[in-house]
């Protein structure tokens, strides 16, 4: 019983001087894995206006609108669940997923990506300081570093 009370003390002290698991997020970011699914990006030139993506979307996040004499999808980031179904179904490979996940806006309307915004390349933070998860030592284990 005494050992059970004393043991956590040592364990707690031991961990207090170990490297932290969390990172100082706004200053340091985690590297997304290569398959990571962020915002959908449209390549307008490749789009053949076939509506397959609009039909498959479970949340009605995509909607056909007219843009430069062509029907292309418009994207509502607030409805999208990042399920990748539209990318898979697209016959012309016009849609792709990017690493971008930080698309919060102040208004609901700001979340709607009109075709010209939808087709812009994503804001990449890969060039900022990023770190990956690694297993450091076998005893304690893990840290982002």
């Amino acid at each position: 019983m005494v050992l059970d009370i004393i043991r956590p003390f040592f364990l707690g002290f031991y961990h207090a001087f170990k490297r932290t698991f969390t990172v100082k997020h706004p200053f340091v970011r985690l590297t997304p894995t290569e398959r990571y699914r962020g915002r959908v990006v449209l390549n307008i030139d490749r789009c053949i206006s076939c509506r397959s993506c609009v039909n498959i979307c479970p949340n009605k996040a995509l909607e056909m609108v007219k843009f430069e004499k062509k029907l292309v999808p418009q994207y509502d980031a607030g409805r999208c669940c990042l399920c990748n179904l539209c990318v898979e179904v697209c016959p012309a490979i016009a849609l792709s997923m990017s690493y971008e996940v930080e698309f919060s806006e102040y208004t609901r309307k700001g979340l709607i990506h009109t075709p010209d915004r939808f087709s812009q390349p994503p804001k990449s933070f890969l060039f900022e300081k990023t770190v990956t998860v690694k297993i450091l030592d076998k005893k304690r284990g893990v840290a982002h570093r």
Partner: peptide, 20 residues
């Protein structure tokens, strides 16, 4: 430590929580 498993799942599936 759950984060490690979620990282693995992210590698495999591309998402952390809802994988589809």
């Amino acid at each position: 430590d759950r984060e490690l498993i979620l990282d693995l799942l992210e590698r495999l599936t591309g998402q952390r929580i809802t994988y589809t």
